[in-house]
Write a protein that binds this DNA or RNA. Sequence first.
DNA 1: CTGTAGACCTGGAGGC
DNA 2: TGCCTCCAGGTCTACA
Length: 271
Amino acid sequence: MPELPEVETTRLGLKPLLKKTIQEMVVRDHRLRWPIDVNIKNIIKNKVIHDVKRRAKYLVFVLDEGFLLIHLGMSGRLSIVSKKENIKKHDHVDFIFQDSELLLRFNDPRRFGSIHYEEKEIEQHFLIKHLGLEPLEKEFNSDYLFKKSRKKTQCIKNTIMDSRVVVGVGNIYASESLFLAAIKPTRRSGSMTKYECERLVAAIKKIIGDAIKMGGSSINDYASANGSLGYFQQEHKVYGKAGFPCSQCGQLIVKKVLGQRSSFFCKQCQK
DNA sequence: CTGTAGACCTGGAGGC
DNA sequence: TGCCTCCAGGTCTACA
């Protein structure tokens, strides 16, 4: 999927939908990570989109009443396209608007994405309520990570990818952040010093912040809502670079599976 | 409570 | 060309 910077890039690309009224939601395939509730299309009909926010990797459409919650999973994409645009494979859902030649199209080959409606408090939704801090908020700091990592025996990479601790640190940015902080992904979380937590928090904020500024990582032609491509993938220092020399020291980058996910790092630079 | 493996699903790449 | 295996941006759920 899109990692957090890609979701944020998508969110920014959805601005043209503000103040538009949803005329119809067309569901061609309801079989997403959770089946799309058959009632949603009736509930959101004629509602106005007042804002599009983001919590973790969830896009939150603020309607007159209630919220539409969309997750892109691994391969999901939201694009604003012309009503005349041909329907392609995996174009599962369309949102059609009143007085508009454009529509919002949800495409997701692997169907790990999801679409939910929450009537009341979005923070109480079952997919949202357990979530930890946003990486860019100031409460996510070295004191917090140090406290959270105490007594943990798991690898630090798994801890920073745990959404109950901090959200939005996906597989690419976890490897990149650990490289920038010069910390081995296999380090036991409980062994992290206060200073290392400080470096890691700073690295996560820098990597994610920079990636957002650059429009995300366009792996496999990932594109934002307006079709533009991101450039952050050109900045990857270790992710997907197994066997290539480290940009810092020249030693070959290695790949190791942690928590069933590929992790990339430099044995020389990361301790 | 913690940590890990399995599950969901499609498609592309590479080997034979 | 076809078939097989492996791998992929996420994260919930079950189980030890």
